[in-house]
Amino acid sequence: MIETENLTKKFGDLVAVDGVSFSVSEGEVFGFLGPNGAGKTTTVRILCCLISKTSGGARIGGYDVSDEADSLKIRKMIGLVPDNVGLYEALSAYKNLDFYGRLYGCPEAQRKENIRRFLTMLGLWEKKDVATGTFSKGMKQKLAIARALVHDPQVLFMDEPTANLDPESSKTVRDFILELRKEKRTIFLNTHNLDEAQRVCDRIAILNTKLMATGTPEELERMVGARRAVIRLEEPSQTVLAALKKRFPDVDVTADGTSLTVEATDPEKQTPDIVEAVVRAGGRVQFAGVVGSTLEDTYLKLVRRDA
């Protein structure tokens, strides 16, 4: 459904997106994960035919984003939730959506039905005649999502839809994305929130100007392969930390509150020794276990390697 090949965008001397290739299948929720300035917005803008690419290629539904005639066809089949909601604050929620529905050439009956459906799904139907200037951030974001859907697009692009939202609104938006996933819509989700990517995406690409990795959340988790022993004490103790560092000089030992983390090559085998050392140093162990690497580990490793 979405395909890029060596997609590159330069702003003057600055390379914002560097040789990015990926493909997203129909019905897939694809997470585009990366730190600020990674080039997520730039990529989405190229895919939505808003700005030009410098080199490489991108196609949506087989149409070329840089072809004048194709670009109108692409824009008809996609919806965009931009990083800034960009609502008309003087107009009501309904009028905002109706305007967009008309721009997409939606017949009136379908427009009405879609507006009703999405405003109801997002809990905004009661507020449909209220000027959006009075809306809370969360309501505005939800309305921006409804606006992107008013013409029933096959592909939905969302640029950090939960950034700057309170936890409750974020959850509503995330749950809504999961609803949309059931409808088999292709969703391209920009985010810098790992947890969000993990929870809603079928596949994730990690971007830091270049594409660092692509895979399912599970594949990415396993990528770094680092596992470690975690010991939880009754109370934080510098003595125990010092003792562990002394006993295991070659591995990384860190303390975070009452938790001690030991990066071990074979944590199962080493845990008994670790616990013994802790007890000897006077530490009282509440919990000891081995944890696998997380998406966060992979992410940090990939993103930092480049920095």
Partner: peptide, 9 residues
């Protein structure tokens, strides 16, 4: 609001 507007056909 120009960005979403420009994203329409």
């Amino acid at each position: 609001s120009l960005e979403p507007l420009l994203a329409t056909p």
